[in-house]
Design a protein around this nucleic acid. Sequence first.
DNA 1: TAGGCTCATTGACAAATGTCAAGAGTCGGC
DNA 2: GCCGACTCTTGACATTTGTCAATGAGCCTA
Lengths: 193, 193
Amino acid sequence: MIEPLLERLNKFHPLNAALTERISSATNMVTYHAGDYILKEGQVCNKACLVIKGLARSYYIKEDKDITSRFMDEGFIITSWISYYTQQPGNEFIEALEETTLACINYADIQKMYTDFPEFNIVGRKQAEYGFFMAEQRTQILRKHTAEEKYKFFLSNHPTLLQRVALKHIATYLGMNEETLSRVRSKFHRKKD
Amino acid sequence: MIEPLLERLNKFHPLNAALTERISSATNMVTYHAGDYILKEGQVCNKACLVIKGLARSYYIKEDKDITSRFMDEGFIITSWISYYTQQPGNEFIEALEETTLACINYADIQKMYTDFPEFNIVGRKQAEYGFFMAEQRTQILRKHTAEEKYKFFLSNHPTLLQRVALKHIATYLGMNEETLSRVRSKFHRKKD
DNA sequence: TAGGCTCATTGACAAATGTCAAGAGTCGGC
DNA sequence: GCCGACTCTTGACATTTGTCAATGAGCCTA
């Protein structure tokens, strides 16, 4: 069950036997049920996990409203980035939306791997670069695009998620409210006929 | 003049003599005048530069309008992230807003340093993590905040930039138009009296 | 199967933001 | 000093989006 993690990391940089062994022994497999919390607000995010199967979302509360910040499905790395980076309690919740199996490594173990295996920093660097790249894309979408453009962006970038995620979560992810998304959808789908 | 770069990188991870020597010889100092392009749309961003002195902004064109994506002043690393990461032509321009002096290293040289000095990946990883962290913050601000909240965020996070940057650029950076920012400002400053 | 959920949609209206146009202030070059 | 270009502000109005409330569909559970 840990193979997908090793494969993923190997793509960033080939891992030698010793490092592979270390990763294997440091990895914990955990399964969450739909609705379970993977992380709660106020906790320090002390792990990074690859989604083996399932789907999760991270969100935070702003004025009593729950705002989705990311969806993480198979192949994604789950972590509450700001909290992980600063090792301070963060404002994010992470919630499993489906039965979700994760391959997790503790923050402390990751740090130790960085010092014991310098080449593991290549993996960490590429992962961070990839995350940065994705976050940068999200900011481009959020700036100055209409609700309809944001919806189209979501459709083309996450075609499968539409079926798996409640629309209200997609709405807050795109920076609009539920009703606006609903109207955009009905207008958009009418157009296509 | 290259010391600020070495200092900055040393903070991420102590550099030994050989690596310091390599970085020094790979670094080019370049100075741009206000209004000069550091990067143009359609070019591959093949370098990363520390801002020694001055100020630049990156932007892209959307429907004939110029949208600011970031401001980069002293201590910031300038790169067009999406293009740098993919090594494909990007859609970003980078423009010097003041007389700006940069310490630049080529993409190819950086990659060679990653393989020749594995510990340099620690530096690259931390830099990417930091960039990710900042980008993540930006997405939180852009989602679901009112124009006034965005302006307040800018004030508290970039207090000095307000004096150095045209308001129209701040407006597009925050995902609103010039007039809206102007109204927010007059309302906001009236309140304080 | 009935009742009680949540989710998605729709309508009416309110509020925020965008668009277009005009005008005042600032700055640098000539 | 004057002109022209640019920046910022303001007003009137249009459009978009948000808010509140009601409704129906789907689903779980007793």
